[in-house]
Computed example of a mutant assay.
Amino acid sequence: MYKDAEKSYGSELLNLVVAKGYLTKLVANEAVRSWLDRNTPEFLEQFELVINTARMEEAMEQQARHGTDEPDAAAEPTAPQDEASGGLAAE
């Protein structure tokens, strides 16, 4: 059972990374974000959870490295960044 889970983990992680990238770019578009917020706020909330997943993992890693119970303020989830600062920008 462990081996089966280990085999599927790679493809599931790849799917999550692709979905996260797409959702990050989609939600960064102000027109799309506004429409989602007005018409389907529950979808927007779930999209943001997916987008922030990797950031939470980073926060947990930093917490473990520093040996504290509180994540670093810099590791808190933030809005998507533009390309100049290393993130994705809306087109």
Rank of each mutant, 00 (worst) to 15 (best):
E48S: 04
G86R: 05
A89G: 11
L13V: 02
V18Y: 07
L16K: 00
H66R: 14
K3F: 11
A54D: 06
S11A: 04
W35N: 11
E61D: 13
L44I: 09
E57M: 13
T53D: 04
E61I: 15
E91C: 02
A89L: 08
A5M: 11
D82G: 03
V32L: 01
M60Q: 11
E57R: 11
L14N: 02
A5W: 09
L14W: 01
D37C: 09
Q62E: 15
V17L: 11
R65I: 11
L13F: 01
D37Y: 09
A64V: 10
R38E: 15
F43L: 12
A73G: 04
A64Y: 10
L13Y: 04
E61S: 12
M1I: 03
R38P: 01
A5L: 09
K20H: 13
N52H: 15
A19Q: 12
A19G: 00
Y2A: 07
R55H: 03
L23W: 02
G21Q: 11
E61M: 15
S85I: 00
S8T: 12
Q63F: 05
Q62P: 00
A89R: 08
T40H: 15
E42P: 00
N52M: 07
K7I: 12
W35I: 13
K25P: 01
G86W: 10
G86F: 05
V27C: 05
K20R: 15
Q62S: 14
E30T: 11
V18M: 12
L16E: 06
A64F: 13
R33V: 01
